[in-house]
């Protein structure tokens, strides 16, 4: 691959997260480098989604430090993480069901829209220009994801595969530095998975977006990711390039049981 993997952009050190007595994450450290595709894998309940929620500020870990672009983050709210350039998609599609595809993706531009409420109510010059400028940008994303034909359709009426694509589009509209993808290919057939892989690799390649990905399809993970971190019961049991991880005895044990 031609892309250049850069310096560490996100560094997680000794993260522990508890819900009451339940330990979701225990002492996990790993880092993400600029422009790479970083996969997080692990059996069900390993803490993968919790990990993403920690990264974008939905959960606050009790212990550990998070450095984003060299600065330590404290008491981060999700919208602040968004403002810093962390976008994500959801495992169970969390689109805005009552809104059209276009409006859903336009919400991703929200942080860049500066005109005030009164201007918007009057649809006055600057507000209108801003709206049209961002519409043009959103149309580029719609073209990129090949969903032109459904731009005015309410997302509630779309099939699952397309909804996943809109979810990706909404995150892309934020022009994020890091894109967190929570099982982008769950429940898809082979063709849809191929399309989605293509989009993910294109995003990574064309826009240089760093991608952190949770996925269960090992074929996909091993193919597209640069480095993989493996979690099991909230603990890190493997970290490295796909080949290393695949041959690690601990990882095999977690996935296949002790007997193998």
């Amino acid at each position: 691959m031609s892309k250049q993997i850069g310096d560490v952009i996100l560094d997680l050190q000794n993260i522990s997260l508890r819900f009451g007595g339940v330990k979701a994450l225990t002492d996990i450290s790993f880092n993400v480098r600029e422009h790479e595709v970083r996969a997080i894998i692990g059996p069900n309940g390993a803490g993968k989604s919790s990990m993403l929620n920690v990264i974008n500020g939905v959960y606050h870990p009790q212990d550990g430090k998070i450095f984003f672009r060299g600065e330590e983050r404290k008491a981060m709210q999700p919208h602040m993480a968004a403002a810093q350039g962390i976008a994500r998609t959801f495992q169970n599609i969390a689109l805005f069901k009552g809104m059209s595809v276009l409006d859903n993706i336009m919400t991703g531009r929200n942080l860049q829209m500066k005109s005030n409420l009164l201007m918007q109510a009057l649809w006055w010059g600057p507000a209108r220009n801003e709206e049209l400028k961002h519409r043009a940008r959103v149309e580029e994303i719609i073209d990129f994801l090949e969903i032109q034909h459904i731009r005015k359709t309410p997302v509630g009426r779309l099939p699952y595969g397309l909804q996943k694509r809109v979810d990706l589009g909404r995150a892309l509209a934020m022009e994020p530095k890091i894109l967190l993808l929570d099982e982008p290919m769950a429940g898809m057939n082979v063709e849809e998975k191929q399309d989605m892989c293509r989009f993910i690799l294109d995003v990574n390649d064309q826009f240089g977006t760093t991608i952190v990905l949770i996925e269960h399809d090992m074929g996909v993970v091993m193919d597209i990711s640069d480095r993989v971190v493996v979690l099991d019961y909230g603990k890190k049991i493997g970290d490295g390039i796909p080949d290393e991880v695949r041959s690690s005895p601990e990882v095999i044990k977690a996935y296949l049981g002790a007997g193998h």
């Binding site: 994500r88 689109l95 336009m106 918007q120 995150a171």
Partner: peptide, 27 residues
């Protein structure tokens, strides 16, 4: 005008899925 502009989309986003709205940068 408000409902077709950014403020209206923020309201509808909060209505439809408030967690996702927050993650996308809506306060």
């Amino acid at each position: 005008n408000m409902t077709r502009a950014s403020i209206g989309r923020q309201w509808m986003a909060i209505r439809d899925m408030d967690v996702a709205a927050e993650v996308i940068g809506i306060r």
